[in-house]
C-alpha cells in the first residue's frame, strides 16, 4: 500500500474500510505449512473453529460444510489445526505440518 498524504485520509485517524486487514498477507510468516489430506478429512470443522487467523477455507453452500483447504495468504503455520484434527489421533491425519519450500 503506497503511503497517502494527510489530505487523502479520513480525519481523526479513523479507518472506514472495515475488515481491510484481509489485504495484509501474513502467509509469509510461515516456516511450516499444513498439508491437507482430503481423504482423511471428516469435515468436523475443528480446524476452522480453532484457527486464530480465519485461514481455513470452508464451503458452506451444501447441507454439510466442506473443508476445502488452507487460505495461504493468512495462515501463519502455527499448526493448531493439525494438533486439533481428530482423525490425527487415529493415525489418519487430515492436516499434517510440513516444512514449507520457498
Amino acid at each position: 500500500m503506497s503511503l497517502k498524504r494527510a489530505q487523502e485520509l479520513p480525519d481523526a485517524g479513523i479507518i472506514t474500510e472495515a475488515g481491510n486487514a484481509v489485504d495484509f498477507k501474513t502467509g509469509d510468516w510461515r516456516t511450516y505449512v499444513p498439508q491437507f489430506h482430503e481423504e482423511n478429512c471428516i469435515h468436523c470443522m475443528f480446524c476452522w473453529i480453532y484457527c486464530p487467523d480465519s485461514a481455513i477455507d470452508v464451503d458452506t453452500s451444501g447441507d454439510k460444510p466442506q473443508m476445502k483447504g488452507i487460505l495461504l495468504d493468512h495462515c501463519k503455520g502455527c499448526g493448531i489445526c493439525a494438533t486439533e484434527c481428530p482423525p490425527a489421533a487415529k493415525g489418519k491425519a487430515a492436516l499434517v505440518m510440513v516444512r514449507e519450500e520457498k
Binding site: G19, A21, V22, F24, T26, P52, D73, K76, C78
Partner: peptide, 11 residues
C-alpha cells in the same frame, strides 16, 4: 475478525 491481523502464530 478477518485474517491479516498481526497476532503471533498460534495466538
Amino acid at each position: 475478525l478477518t485474517g491479516g491481523h498481526r497476532a503471533c502464530a498460534g495466538c
